[in-house]
Amino acid sequence: MKKLLLYLVLIGLFASCKKEISNVYDIAPVNVRQSGEKGNLKSDLQFISIAYSDLFGKQISTSELNSLLSGYKAVGDKTLIIDLILRNLLVKPGIVKIDQATMQADPEAFIQASFERFLVREPTEMETWFFANLINENNQFLPEDIYYALMRAEEYRHY
């Protein structure tokens, strides 16, 4: 009887021993990316879809994507056709943009917002100075010209 009780106590001890699981809910560290850290090339489909979303603030429709892809596949020099796609999108009605006067009144703020919108990062001081300087030098520049410059950059082809 004593032996039986001993077995029961031992079984009870083992059965009750269970590793405690602790769930920790906190914020994982996220590093802000610099331009040089974008190492992945967007696929052409990604590039076209993202360019459209960045300009119009909405997802591209299937029919519009098909029209763009049809022309994209029709030309072998992809740099050429991508440039043509960008320049055609930039004149279409519906682009989310500020007016030229607002850009010229505060080019630094415009540069800041445009870098965040298209390159998903803040501009460096050097970049802010460089772009603001060019905008001040040439009062013919439109906001879409600057968008075009940013979207033509190799950095924009990457994520």
């Binding site: 740099t79 010209d145 950059a153």
Partner: peptide, 22 residues
């Protein structure tokens, strides 16, 4: 002006080994 911007942006960009598939 746009060429200057392009050269400036590309000059400061390091694609970390990937290349444009053009």
């Amino acid at each position: 002006g746009l060429e200057k911007m392009n050269a400036f942006l590309n000059g400061g960009f390091n694609a970390a080994g990937s290349s444009l598939n053009s």
